[in-house]
């Protein structure tokens, strides 16, 4: 089973018809943490958690595709932990941002994610 973990409404709206969505109301790190929890439960990463050169916490949005598996997938675990480490290096850059800018970040996350679907 594939599952999309995202806090990006654009990704949710585009894929909810035919994908399982785990929508997160929280920041970038909350998405990574949710993905990590799934990995703990046996899911495996299908997309890179640090997709995009826009830095974590510079963009508020993150979308990750995972699929269920049997047993813990160690490469996924190490990748998500490394991503969490990297995320901690970057403070949240725009606690508040104009809607247009938020929309641009949402679009970038959506297109990066779509490139993998």
């Amino acid at each position: 089973m594939e599952i999309i973990v995202t806090n990006n409404p654009r990704v949710r709206d585009a894929y909810s018809a035919n994908h399982e969505i785990h929508f997160i109301s929280g920041d970038f790190s909350c998405v990574l943490i949710a993905a990590r929890d799934l990995i703990h439960k046996g899911f495996r990463l299908l997309t890179h958690p640090l997709s995009g050169s826009v830095k974590p916490n510079e963009t508020p949005f993150k979308s990750i595709l995972l699929c269920s598996g049997s047993g813990i997938d160690l490469p996924s675990l190490s990748m998500i932990e490394n991503a969490l480490d990297a995320c901690r290096k970057f403070p949240i850059k725009y606690p508040e941002m104009p809607d247009a800018m938020r929309d641009d970040f949402s679009l970038i996350d959506y297109t990066l994610f779509s490139s993998a679907i």
Binding site: S51, G52, S53, L107, I108, T111, L112, F113, S114, S115
Partner: peptide, 8 residues
Amino acid sequence: LQSQGLMH
């Protein structure tokens, strides 16, 4: 080569 999507 960078190849992730829009603007990337």
